[in-house]
Amino acid sequence: MKPDIRRTWPLHLMLLPALAGLIVFNYVPLGGIVMAFMDYKPWLGFDGSPWIGFGHFRALFEREDSLQVIWNTLVISVFKIIFNLLVPFGFAILLNEVRIRLLTRTIQTMVYLPHFLSWVILGGILVNFLSTDGGFVNRVLGAIGIGPIPFLMHGDWFRFTVIVSDVWKEFGYGTIVFLAALANIDPSLYEAAEVDGAGRWKQTLHITIPSLLPMAIVVGTLSLGNILNAGFDQIFNLYNGMVMNKGDIIDTFVYRTAILEGNFGFATAVGLFKSVVSMVLIVCAYRLAYKYANYRVF
């Protein structure tokens, strides 16, 4: 099988629709990135707005709280990325062990429901649920002699709450990918293992987990693109004066200082900064996966 053009031209052709869409809807508008270096005024446009070099980037880093905000973002998003990978992974495996099909399906449907609630709604529910003043969680904790815990009014607890509630909201949806990957495993592998006398635990360890790993690597690598997105909607709906210090993230900061003001230039600059960081991380992850797992993510 030589990779000559006669054999591969259908492959190029197959890529054509996606590529055309990509060029028109992604690469053409990419020119807008120049805004990051402009004091962009809508009425002056790209031709007329003055260039300001790295002014927006300077503004991003010059505030007293810049580093704190970036740090908050990183802490929250790193934990979210880790747990939003591990929890669905583990959940899929555990669910796979349930032999009662109806139960499997019911549980699966139930855990995927929270994905469909917006943070505006969930924010209100969480405030009630986690209240130190008669909220359900604190009443339960109080019954066993703990608390009350200020889940939303103390910086460290706030981060904890934000991470846990996000994982809770999304893990069911994230599980779907792994369930599909599980369905792709060749059942004859298990049959063979059983013949060899391997127990359930061994089958999981030597067949299920290795089969899911590629998908985990892919999902994990792609989620690095969110390394500086800690979840705008969620935090915007939950943060308050008591947790500003540890809860303010890049996106809420940009919203207050740029989006509301119509400052497209600054918003673009921050977006570019986030993209560059993500790109570096994704390239690193790609290299590592290729080097150590011999797996090509893209």
């Binding site: 209100g124 405030v127 209240s131 130190t132 003043d133 939303l152 009014m153 308050n240 004066g241 008591m242």
Partner: peptide
Amino acid sequence: PAEAALWDENK
């Protein structure tokens, strides 16, 4: 309210 810092207008 004990959690006035969390309360917006509607709340």
